[in-house]
Design a protein around this nucleic acid. Sequence first.
DNA 1: GCAGATGCACCGACCGGACGGTACAGTTTT
DNA 2: AAAACTGTACCGTCCGGTCGGTGCATCTGC
Lengths: 157, 157
Amino acid sequence: MTPAETRSASRRILSAARVIAARAGAGKITIDAVAKEAGLSKGGVLYNYPTKKALLSGLLDAMLAEHRELLESVPERHPARTLRGHLETVLQSQEVDDDLSMAILATAASDPQLLDPLRGELSDDIGRILSDTQDPQGAMVVFWAIQGVRFQKLLKL
Amino acid sequence: MTPAETRSASRRILSAARVIAARAGAGKITIDAVAKEAGLSKGGVLYNYPTKKALLSGLLDAMLAEHRELLESVPERHPARTLRGHLETVLQSQEVDDDLSMAILATAASDPQLLDPLRGELSDDIGRILSDTQDPQGAMVVFWAIQGVRFQKLLKL
DNA sequence: GCAGATGCACCGACCGGACGGTACAGTTTT
DNA sequence: AAAACTGTACCGTCCGGTCGGTGCATCTGC
């Protein structure tokens, strides 16, 4: 493998899927397209992710992991820590966040059930946010507003 | 035409598309499925909407029209009228609103460009909201929160 | 007043391409 | 030698779109 291909193939595949979603829209994620973008063959993609569902759910998993990591980078003792983390990811308009939305879209369109991990993650976050704050209503409004901004960005408004 | 078929075919087609999206997900909107649900043939659907893009954009148009109508049903002199309208549509969890989200999803997945009318509508609404209020920041947070709730409902969280 | 022409709304068989997935023999990497 | 691919060929299905009709209401000419 050349240096550029050092990262494991499965990671390259996932990031290829993200590139395609960002460039051409969520509906254009096909195994062939991903293979081409990732610089390997269709067989290679299917070797790593035996089905397209597996690929999409892998994509979602990876992004949730990244997102979690970002949340954890907020200082331990920060008040309203989780909420703050959400706010920062969306404000900084990070790559992670944009692509995450796209992945959600792609997943939801093909099979809504694949979103289950996201649902779990989200309700955990809400629980954490509520236990962080003394103003639950206010916190929820802010949280929803953050989701709203994500939504807008997702649809490029 | 029998009484049940009194409504014009094109309306029946659009509502069939909504039913399918709500029942099976945005990705399941196919011309065949719509035809079957609407009680006519594929040819009949394509007679009314010559392409699938036309169908989706017709769907979005119709829903935006309904949404606009709901907004206008808020009393003329209500302060923060537009914002109030948005709030009510989402809180009442109206059929219109749920399906609208689904239509957006379907459209975005197939061809993001079809969302242009929505973008226009949305920026008009924002303009109206800002001119209604003396607290622009507060209004925007509320507006975003409303969009956030829509997003959550769309993904069934 | 009625045969034939016209046009609208719709039917449904069919076509072609895209796509997910399989199979498998060969090649490179570890 | 095993693991991790490559490359090619292929299959079955789905789906958007086409196309030659068909029933039917309305108009036209005689």
